[in-house]
Design a protein around this nucleic acid. Structure first.
Length: 452
RNA sequence: GAGGUUGUAGCUCAGUCGGUUAGAGCGCUAGAUUGUGGUUCUAGAGGUCGCGGGUUCGAGACCCGUCUCCCUCCCCA
């Protein structure tokens, strides 16, 4: 018999952690609703045909796949076993755990497009699973809180996402954060400009490391990735753009011949203007040409939020995807969304000590349990307290009072009602304040008034 | 997927050069206190030293494998 253990990269959430997590969920949900988003839930697992190919090759690798039920290997031939794991997987697994909430949402939109009110704004708060290697801030099961709008290309949606971020994070006590914004169209434009059409993905992965490893090593990496010397030379101005005073103007001059690049800049500038018109003060937004994001479905704006002064990955991420529903046979539905990573937000709040105090009290009154007679009496008053809206519990066993009080103490229950033979005969119960140790007598009704 | 690191009581950790019965603090249980928690004192319980194999007269310690924790890269929330 082996000791029980948790599956790698997963965690339990005890009562005190759940109080904190619920606080985060409630805060996010409230704000989502205030911005007009409606709730949606989708299944934990989907057909692999829905999930595969949406996240790039890396993403496909990280999908948890479910073995087919029953005799999954019965019809396999020797040739199947030796064909390699990829062809084999398709023969023994046809379902997988969801990797994010956006793709299941796209499937839902396609399946229900006839009845949805467009533009459709939905929020979704559910766990997702990734077969990643766990490390700090990285789990194999974690919650995402997504808000997406589909059915409109209006940049108001992007601007509202910026507002939403500035609404929710400070409510959680996270004041020092940076919303990095870029646009895939700009990246496409840059790749075109330097004659590396379609290579913006690898280009960005390299540029993204600029502040980490420096310009020289970025260029080394680009050479390794088969970028020509001409391309690298042409790219030079981009390195100086990242910290410029007026990055849009500089970039506009440089990208003057790239239609798509200019469109990306236009879009971003409009978002900036709208955010301003919405009256956002102290906007913590920053244009970052090097922001790439690996999810292959993004086509327009890209967002990423970093909590400053905390060593952890991004706590929110999102962007616009013009053709996600296209892979399900319905092109032309543009969408944009943002995802809050609750587990990382939790870690940030824990590290910065941002959780409100005194969130753990749930029971307010405990009724003691001396003996059979007192127990019967307790049963009669227990519902009265609850009807008065007071969280109440009765100690279930007639054990020593010391033990009962110790239980109340450790559970942070502020009041205990003591019932013994004296109390039963006079109807005057004893209320003990666990914080001060003071005791007072009174009828049930009087004590309820005191506790309320 | 690549690299590094860790694992001893419920928790945090000692354990010397390979040597007799593996320790501490906290926590837990009971009592001091027959109707009163937190403080104090006393006593007690609690271990397959991650798992499997090997070296040795002898392994918690050394070697190999494996799993796990944490971390870096990749990628991501």
């Amino acid at each position: 018999m082996s000791k029980p253990s948790l599956a790698r990269g997963t965690r339990d959430f005890g009562p005190e952690q759940m109080v904190k997590r619920t606080f985060i969920f409630d805060t996010i949900r409230r704000s989502f609703q205030r911005y007009g988003f409606q709730p949606l839930e989708t299944p934990a697992f989907e057909n692999l045909s829905v999930l595969m190919g949406k996240y790039g090759d890396e993403g496909d690798q990280l999908l948890f796949k479910l073995l087919n039920s029953g005799d999954f290997s019965g019809k396999l031939t020797d040739a199947d076993w030796h064909a390699g794991y990829k062809p084999l997987t398709s023969k023994i697994s046809e379902k997988g755990l969801r990797y994010d909430l956006t793709v299941p949402f796209a499937r839902y939109v396609v399946m229900n497009r006839g009845t949805l009110v467009m533009p459709f704004k939905r929020y979704q708060i559910q766990p997702v699973w990734r077969a990643d290697r766990p490390q700090k801030g990285r789990y194999r099961e974690f919650y995402q809180c997504d808000a997406d709008v589909v059915g409109t290309e209006s940049l108001l949606c992007e601007a509202e996402i910026v507002l939403l971020l500035h609404d929710i994070l400070p409510q959680l006590g996270i004041e020092d954060f940076t919303v990095k914004i870029n646009n895939r169209k700009i990246l496409t434009g840059i790749a075109d400009m330097i004659g590396a059409h379609g290579q913006e993905g690898t280009l960005c992965v390299a540029i993204d490391k600029l502040d980490k490893i420096g310009k020289g090593k970025v260029i080394d990496e680009l050479r390794e990735r088969n970028f020509s010397e001409e391309s690298i030379a042409l790219l030079d101005p981009v390195f100086s753009l990242t910290g410029g005073e007026n990055p849009f103007a500089d970039l506009r001059t440089w990208l003057a011949t790239s239609e798509i690049g200019l469109k990306g800049i236009d879009e971003l500038e409009q978002v900036w203007q709208m955010v301003d018109a919405l009256g956002l003060k102290n906007a913590r937004i920053q244009f970052d040409v090097t922001l790439a994001r690996g999810l292959s479905y993004y086509t327009g704006a890209i967002f990423e939020v970093k909590a400053n002064n905390v060593q952890i990955g991004s706590i929110c991420g999102g962007g616009r995807y013009d053709n996600l529903t296209g892979t399900f046979g319905v092109p032309g539905i543009s969408g944009v969304g943002i995802s809050f990573g609750v587990d990382r937000i939790y870690d940030v709040m824990e590290e910065l000590n941002l959780f409100p105090e005194n969130q753990t009290i749930s029971t307010k009154v405990m009724i003691s349990n001396f003996d059979q007679q007192a127990f019967q009496y307790g049963l009669s008053i227990l519902p009265k307290l609850r009807e008065a809206g007071i969280n109440t519990e009765m100690y279930p066993d007639s054990v020593k009072l010391k033990k009962q009080l110790d239980y109340a103490d450790r559970k942070n229950i502020p009041f205990v009602i003591l019932i013994g033979s004296d109390e039963i005969s006079t109807g005057q119960l004893t209320l003990k304040n666990m914080k001060t140790g003071e005791q007072q007598k009174g009828t049930v009704e009087e004590l309820i008034a005191v506790v309320q």
